[in-house]
Design a binder for these strands. Structure first.
Length: 251
DNA sequence: TACTTTCAACTATCCACAGA
DNA sequence: TCTGTGGATAGTTGAAAGTA
């Protein structure tokens, strides 16, 4: 049994050697574990395969969502949004009361858990936009709307340093998880000055399939800009832009 | 008993390396 | 020294075998 006696304790795996801390001290040994073939075929790993199946479904579901809102997500995301979204979708999958273990789905689970999901932890909408806003989705017409009464930007929006302008965006996505497809439309305000003067009332509407029977989510976001010599530049490549799930509507 | 590894899906980011 | 390429990694869940 190999032991680590140096000052620097390692944790993790380098090559075929694993380093970890146990009650016997810091150890180093050849990595082990069951092989891929066993996990794929051995009846003892049935539970493991069921987990893998549901986890895989959540991962694919995350891709459907990210692909759907890609045009907005590109401007407001952090490095770990994929894993955070997967985590949420796994939790949703577990709330599915219909299907048996290993076959549970996102759309049969409680998709409400996706409400208020923030796509950028570096710029959360909940900590950025303090102007009250209303969202509404009409399943018959397929219209998703966002409205804000006039507000003073410097009071109602916590903008990162350097921002001179901003934009409010929204989008609706109709999600078809089994077929890995989606319908998406987005709308946005003009680029507005970040100052103390009240904005005009904001009303944005986007439309997805009327009378849809699929789950629909609506996202709301804020994007920041910096004006330099009359040109608008995205502030720090959108590091502080916010995007959040505002509505989750299922049949 | 405590701990690791493995698998499932996905992708931005990081790193090493080769070649110019 | 710089650039492009390709592979590894992180991060998420849960189950069980294997080892000291």
């Amino acid at each position: 049994m190999a032991r680590q006696t140096g000052i620097i304790k390692l944790k993790g795996t380098i090559g075929d050697i694993s380093f970890y801390k146990s009650s016997d001290g810091h150890l180093a040994r050849i990595k082990g574990g069951p092989d891929a073939n066993r996990i794929a075929n051995d009846p003892a790993f049935q539970r493991t395969r069921e987990n893998g199946s549901e986890f895989g479904r959540a991962g694919k579901g995350g891709k459907v969502i990210r692909n759907a809102i890609r045009v907005l997500l590109q401007n407001a995301k952090d490095k770990k949004v994929v894993s955070r979204l997967t985590k949420t979708l796994v939790a949703i999958t577990k709330t599915d009361p219909v299907n048996e273990r290993g076959a549970r789905t996102i759309q049969d689970g409680d998709m409400g858990l996706l409400s208020n999901f923030e796509f950028n932890t570096n710029g959360k909408l909940g900590a950025t936009l303090f102007a009250p806003f209303d969202v509404a989705f009409d399943r018959v017409t397929g219209d998703a709307s966002l409205s804000l009464a006039p507000f003073a930007p410097t009071i109602r929006i916590a903008a990162p340093a350097g921002a001179t302008h901003f934009k409010i965006v929204t989008g609706a996505a109709e999600l078809d998880f089994p077929n890995e497809g989606s319908v998406f439309e987005s709308d946005e305000t003009a680029i507005l000055p970040y100052d103390a003067a009240d904005t005009a009332a904001i009303d944005l509407t986007v439309t997805v399939t009327p009378n849809s029977v699929l789950p629909v989510i609506q996202v709301v976001g804020v994007e920041f800009y910096q004006e330099v010599n009359g040109q608008m530049y995205p502030l720090k490549n959108g590091a502080y832009n916010a995007l959040m799930v505002a509505t989750v509507d299922t049949v």
